[in-house]
Computed example of a mutant assay.
Amino acid sequence: MGAASRCTSCLCCPFKCLACGLFSCLCSILISLLVIAGVLALVLYFIFRPHMIAATVDSAALATFTLTPASALAYNLTVAMTVRNPNKRVGLYYDNVEALALYEGQRFGFAPLDPFYQGTEASTQLAPVFGGQQVLEGDVTAANFRTQQSAGAFDVEVKLNARLRVKVWAFKVRGPRARISCPLSLPAPGAASPPAFKPVDCKVWF
């Protein structure tokens, strides 16, 4: 009864049966491609085992860091940092590289950096320099500045942003945007006998 009904349906509307057959075939192909892509991605992951990049601030110093009564921050900050690619089979291209300097969550410095490439297990030294003047907002920020100035050290954050491209063999694919954050506590300019700078490990996320 059911088979006869399907045959009658196909005889009455052959285009409907053809459309159903094509749709079923396309679905099967699509599912097969998704499964193959998933298996391939899993195999590549276990072969290459990509690891998070690492970053360290090796040294940093404030030559100038003063706040005027009008809340204008005059600053001169130099930073030396190392970015490392720990992957054994994956190369990394860093594009649109920019370094930022922040105080109390407010950006006061910006330094564009040249794009660069890191081979497998390679390290790159970067030396962003921030200098100029920037108005800071908020009475709390000014109060915290005076407190930290009296204590002889300022809490500054240096960030590094870059768009990654991943190189596997001869293939290059667009990667995520890397964000690196480095919280620093730096002696106030002119501080007597400032402590030696200890390298700071940065936080990295994508």
Rank of each mutant, 00 (worst) to 15 (best):
A151T: 05
L136C: 08
Y117P: 01
Q149T: 04
A37N: 14
L184V: 04
Q106L: 09
R179H: 13
P86W: 01
V79I: 13
G105I: 09
C27V: 15
L30A: 15
P115I: 03
L136Q: 06
N85S: 05
A80K: 00
A70V: 04
T147Q: 09
S123Q: 13
F145L: 11
P69F: 08
P189W: 11
L126A: 03
M81W: 08
V173S: 01
I36L: 15
E121G: 04
T141V: 13
C25D: 02
K16H: 09
K167T: 12
K198R: 14
C10G: 06
V83I: 14
A99G: 10
I53P: 01
A101I: 07
W205F: 10
F197D: 10
L18H: 10
R163P: 01
R163E: 12
S59Q: 09
A70P: 00
L126I: 15
L102H: 07
L11M: 15
L113I: 09
G119M: 01
Y103M: 06
W205H: 08
L126S: 04
S59L: 05
A55M: 12
T68C: 04
P183C: 07
P86D: 06
A122D: 12
N161W: 06
A72S: 09
L92S: 02
V35M: 09
P195T: 12
S59T: 07
R177I: 09
G119D: 02
N76E: 15
Q149W: 05
R6D: 11
V156F: 09
V97M: 07
A122S: 15
Y75H: 10
L34Y: 13
V140L: 14
G91C: 06
Q106V: 07
V158I: 12
K172E: 14
E104I: 07
R49I: 00
S9V: 12
T120R: 02
L18Y: 13
G119Q: 03
P194T: 04
G38Y: 11
F23A: 15
Y45V: 02
V158G: 04
L40S: 11
Y117T: 02
N87Y: 00
M52F: 06
V35H: 08
A74L: 11
M81A: 15
P86T: 01
A178Q: 06
S181H: 11
Q134L: 09
R49A: 01
V200A: 06
S181M: 10
V166P: 02
A191H: 12
S24P: 01
A41W: 04
G91N: 02
P194Q: 02
I47N: 03
V97I: 06
